[in-house]
Design a protein around this nucleic acid. Structure first.
Lengths: 204, 204
DNA sequence: GTCTATAAGGAGATAGAC
DNA sequence: GTCTATCTCCTTATAGAC
């Protein structure tokens, strides 16, 4: 008996639907945010009924947590796939560019939580916090390397740079620019990267 | 009969309580956000009952809108009080510093709305939008002057600078730094200003 | 496992006494 | 004008048939 038989057709279908639910939840989260997102919204978007949703996720909190964990995994993957030939600053820039493009494409940032409810929920979630710690370790390393090489301002505490870097991935200016100007996405990304690393004054 | 008699003791007391309500609403908004703030929270914080709240404000939306309008008025006041001797960049810096200090002191930023519900509500509010337009006109003028004088990056579209500037007033990095590091408020402000204008790379 | 129907509880808003 | 008590609606979550 092949080990693959462990994954029956039914299990595969179950996994597929689970992913579809997470996709829908991610999309609704992006437009309405946690508090305004209802389980009916998600069920409707997937095309199933609410009780079926609860067969996959035992609560709204668990559903949202899993969706955000999946996003975080995407970010961690992205870090792993970075071209090793890049210097630390180029890596950080590439990663921020990726995050901005995900958002412009309708996705969520990997640091989405402005709502106190969601923030507390995630900080109690071990699975989520383990991934945050992993990602944070890697980014912290990049920041410190870049500071040593004088690619990032060595006069700033690493924490300040790291938190500000995270903040850029969920910068509301991105939404404003997309909504109120006719700038193409590529220009938005380019300008946001300039502002993040060179600041509003420029003249690097 | 003096024109002052128009403001009776009762009216004055009414106004005072109205301000107390707005203070309480602002405080609760700062900690819990719009969706998690209940009218019971606000009533409890003021020390009155919920129906009394509704004698002053006919809905939760109106209460929150008025609180945010008052905040915006504070920002507009602050612009008016700027030292005319400062150059445009110094004025923008001083204003951002003021906004950051308000937040660190437990207040709200004057661009508070991450929640789609609140954002839509405010955009339908003429009173609010008039003030936004006024503040925006003044800041846009400062930005353009600063760009002409090469104090802000002239290669960036003004919109990009303006929206990014607004975004810095509600930068989540501020909350993280206050919560997870032991940095004194003065240092947080100093570093955030550096990051905003010189960027993460520094070397201005 | 999926659905229809429903329980349980929270929060905005109000009726009516004082 | 203020309060106690209540209405109403919405949303999370589940019971029970198929």
């Amino acid at each position: 008996m092949s080990i693959l038989s462990k994954f029956s057709f039914k299990d595969q279908a179950f996994k597929l639907r689970e992913n579809a639910i997470l996709d829908a939840a991610t999309a609704v989260l992006g437009t309405k945010g946690y508090d305004l997102m209802t389980m009916d919204d998600v069920a409707g978007a997937v095309g199933i009924s609410k009780p079926s949703l609860y067969k996959h996720f035992k609560s709204k909190e668990e559903l949202v947590s899993e969706a955000l964990i999946r996003l975080l995994d995407g970010a961690i993957d992205q870090v792993a796939k970075l071209d090793p030939a890049l210097n630390p600053l180029q890596k950080l820039s590439a990663l921020l560019e990726w995050a901005l493009r995900v958002r412009l494409g309708g996705g969520l940032p990997f640091l989405p939580s402005t709502s106190p409810h969601v923030r507390d929920m995630l900080m109690r979630n071990v699975k989520y916090m383990l991934r945050v710690a992993k990602l944070n370790r890697q980014l912290e390393g990049l920041v410190q390397q870049a500071q040593k090489a004088n690619l990032l301002n060595p006069a700033l505490p690493s924490d300040v740079i790291l938190f500000s870097y995270y903040a850029r991935t969920c910068d509301p200016a991105v939404d404003f620019l997309q909504k109120f100007t006719k700038l193409p996405d590529d220009d938005v990304v380019r300008h946001m990267l300039t502002v993040a690393f060179q600041g509003l004054s420029g003249t690097p």
